[in-house]
Design a protein around this nucleic acid. Structure first.
Length: 266
DNA sequence: ATGGTGGCTGGGCCA
């Protein structure tokens, strides 16, 4: 095994809303930003349709947990991609959908997650969402040591606080902001994870998602629901975090923007 | 405007 020099790494998460539709934008974004790790959600691809060769040509190893037309999560890495685990850890009730994949990249245990939307507060899908988050906590308790370098990033479909939505009064009785959702997010963070973006930015109305409908992006109607949660050992080494709003502009954008975290050397 | 847009598909469902 060659010894690798440990340097700063740049990690990112992006709900691409169909990798087939988004491939030109993703390739461009990887070339321009050069992240060491990119977690993607909503690839909407079967496993045998994932563009492994195209990603390799850009210098990335790929791990993908797909299911076809919906969901699908992936991890790209150019700092190693080992111990790949699709779905929740063994012993945790398995998900019937492709919403989490975990791998070790550059010594960091990284999960790419696509938390269920929930649809409506009285919908069965909402109970699935809460159950899913409880299983995410069980997954972490099973898979990872709280003292390890670990990151859970992706589309949580939960806005952690009212300052993370464009108008909290518009969200009364809606999903993404309910106390129960925020409580299960806190349970997941209780593993020992922190919302790293908030170490660097206190302002309200910094969003990672804007509805395609009604010109949401141009009206500033969005939510911050894409999060990079990290254990303290990673969080304290992090040196910057940002949301790339430019990726939400232009030709055929995803409705989500990438969120980035720069992690300094140990 | 009880809608809108975009992605899955090939008529609606989902976000």
């Amino acid at each position: 095994m060659p010894t690798t020099t440990v340097t700063a790494v740049l990690i990112a998460t992006w709900n691409v809303n169909s990798l087939r539709a988004r491939m030109p934008r993703v390739e461009q974004w990887l070339t321009e930003n050069g992240p060491d790790v990119l977690c993607m959600q909503e690839t909407k691809l079967a496993n045998d349709k994932f563009p492994v060769a195209e990603m390799a040509a850009l210098g990335y190893e790929s791990a993908h947990f797909g299911q076809g037309q919906w969901n699908g999560v992936a991890i790209l890495s150019r700092v190693g991609l080992d111990a790949v685990l699709p779905n929740f850890a063994p012993g945790v009730e398995q998900d019937t959908e492709a919403r989490i994949i975990t791998a070790t990249c550059g010594g960091v245990r990284i999960s790419s997650v696509y938390v269920p939307n929930g649809r409506e507060l009285d919908h069965e899908h909402y109970r699935y969402k809460l159950s899913w988050m409880k299983r995410l906590r069980q997954h972490l308790d099973t898979d990872t040591s709280a003292s390890a370098d670990a990151v859970v990033m992706g589309d949580f479909n939960i806005a952690p606080q009212d300052r993370d939505v464009w108008d909290a009064s518009m969200f009364a009785g809606a999903t993404h902001v309910s106390q129960a959702e925020r409580d299960v997010l806190a349970e997941v963070c209780g593993f020992g994870l922190t919302d790293t973006f908030r170490r660097f930015h206190d302002e309200e109305k910094l969003f990672s998602w804007w509805d395609y409908r009604g010109g949401g992006f141009h009206k500033g109607h969005g939510m911050r629901i894409d999060l990079i949660l990290a254990t303290e050992s990673v969080a304290r080494r992090s040196v910057s975090s940002s949301i790339d709003r430019n990726a939400r502009k232009g030709e055929k954008p995803s409705d989500h923007a990438p969120v980035l975290l720069e992690i300094g050397a140990p």
